[in-house]
Design a binder for these strands. Structure first.
Lengths: 196, 196
DNA sequence: ATGTGTAAGCGACAATTGCCTATTAATTTT
DNA sequence: AAAATTAATAGGCAATTGTCGCTTACACAT
């Protein structure tokens, strides 16, 4: 049993020291990613840039991948809420979410390269999943359809598509791509919906 | 530029020494995964179990994740071809592919646990993608629909769903799950198809 | 304000990683 | 069959990782 609990997952901590340390670590990583690639950044560097001890790092995250995941999830969630996105008002939400994912991938391209190789699925997909899950209550589905599963698959489909788009050399605009993704994924929801 | 070429990718090598070494490394990893978790296995152990020098490992794979990816891709592809699966005869192929993914995840459960935490997306999804791409030729699609994108999204959707299923404590049978996945993903293909 | 809990800092540790330079052994080419 | 090519081995290297035990400093409740 490697790590049953991921310290950074429980964001419920109110201790200002913890919040401060985690913020400094995330900010540190963001800064460092501007200079070099993720794989070339050591935990020591992250700690130094954050003016924290290396041991303190391990107090919060089991390894640098965990920090990357936490950071990505936070930044992506931030981008989404900054846009006031949610699935409560449903019209165009699918396209907006797809656009959010595309934009985030492109935006974080401040990093030198190979962002697509980084393990971002684990951070972005759950956030997208949550949004679908949140909006699921408003929409009755056919018998036998599992809304949870729907949310999961849709989130993976969107991320996969956005990821492929981002890796494409001469890519179309994020807006165009979001339109394509919407058109492609929408049928999943339509066919699951209880029409009457 | 981390690694522009992944040595193991070019399977075009005919040198028996290379083939032998890679096979032994993969088999070694399979065996070790029966005893302990991936994260707790060192490159030295893999090399020892394979009766190869540690330097030889790095001659073939940049790190143990690359070996895991290569091994997973090979084993999954093997399972698929063993079942004679392809998208050329299209009827039920979608369900069969979904079943293949579910079965592979469940089968590899010989590993102690946390298989879901392993980076398997990078190995399984491309294989599934290839199958869709292969079968795409037979099916004309509406104007503006990109078959490549379709393949990517479908592969991600299926893997995501199967992955969620596998992580569920009291899960339904793989066959049942494959049915659900088929029903969910099929509309994507139907709506993209050129009906007449 | 004063203690109690807990985070942060510090130094050190064995283990692992990724890479390097020969040197030897095997395949492939000629 | 000899030569050229290339994989495998051996040993060693600095750097990094993940983890300790211990001490100091801060936060919150009393």
């Amino acid at each position: 049993m490697a790590q049953l609990i991921q310290p950074a997952d429980v964001g419920e901590s109110t201790d200002p020291r913890i919040l401060r340390s985690r913020r400094m670590l995330m900010d540190s990583l963001v800064r460092l990613l501007g200079n070099k690639e993720f794989e070339d950044i050591s935990v020591q560097e992250i700690a130094d840039e954050a003016t924290l001890n290396r041991a303190t790092f391990y107090l919060h995250y089991p390894d640098k991948n965990a920090l990357l995941r936490a950071m990505t999830a936070e930044r992506f969630r931030c981008l989404i809420t900054r846009r006031g996105l949610s699935f409560t008002n449903c019209d165009g939400a699918l396209r907006a979410i797809a656009l959010g994912v595309c934009d985030y991938l492109a935006e974080t391209a401040g990093c030198p390269s190979q962002l697509a190789k980084m393990p971002l699925e684990g951070s972005i997909i759950p956030v997208v999943e949550d949004m679908f899950r949140e909006g699921a209550g408003n929409h009755p589905v056919k018998a036998g359809v599992d809304p949870e599963l729907l949310a999961t698959s849709a989130a993976w489909a969107i991320f996969g598509a956005a990821s492929r788009w981002y890796q494409t050399p001469d890519r179309i605009s994020a807006e165009e791509m979001a339109g394509k993704i919407e058109a492609m994924v929408k049928p999943v929801f339509l066919s699951a919906a209880e029409h009457f």
